[in-house]
Design a protein around this nucleic acid. Structure first.
Length: 101
DNA sequence: GCCATGGCTAGTA
DNA sequence: GCCATGGCTAGTA
């Protein structure tokens, strides 16, 4: 049976290397359609397993963090990223440096 | 209907 | 700054 969309999103997010980030759009591309990018956000919002699914490594295409990050908002996401060496300037990261693709 | 998006356009200076 | 997109969920009946 085909894995549902959310599971596929989680599979990809689980592969993002420590110390890098990716975007909703990149994940959507991997799933075959850039238009699914918004659904990627939905999937991460519903994520209940932050231990195995590092959703803090996903930002939007401008490199900005998620204001509605489930486990504590931008501050929590920022702290998690900084803990693995990603520099966060205000509420955004430099995609040229950290983008995983 | 809702969105943790992304891409493109209109309108100003 | 607007809106097309599409899988999912909350909330009503």
């Amino acid at each position: 049976m085909m894995k549902n969309f959310y599971e596929k999103v989680y599979d990809i997010v689980a592969q993002i290397p420590k110390g890098t980030v990716t975007t909703y759009g990149c994940i959507a591309m991997r799933l075959g359609n850039i238009r699914l990018s918004r659904l990627v956000g939905n999937a991460l919002h519903a994520n209940i397993d932050p231990v195995n699914i590092p959703c803090h490594r996903v930002v939007n295409r401008e490199g900005k963090l998620a204001p509605m990050y489930v486990f504590g908002g931008i501050d929590a996401q920022k702290e998690r990223l900084e803990n693995e060496g990603v520099v966060v300037d205000g509420d955004k990261v430099d995609l040229k440096k950290y983008l995983w693709r």
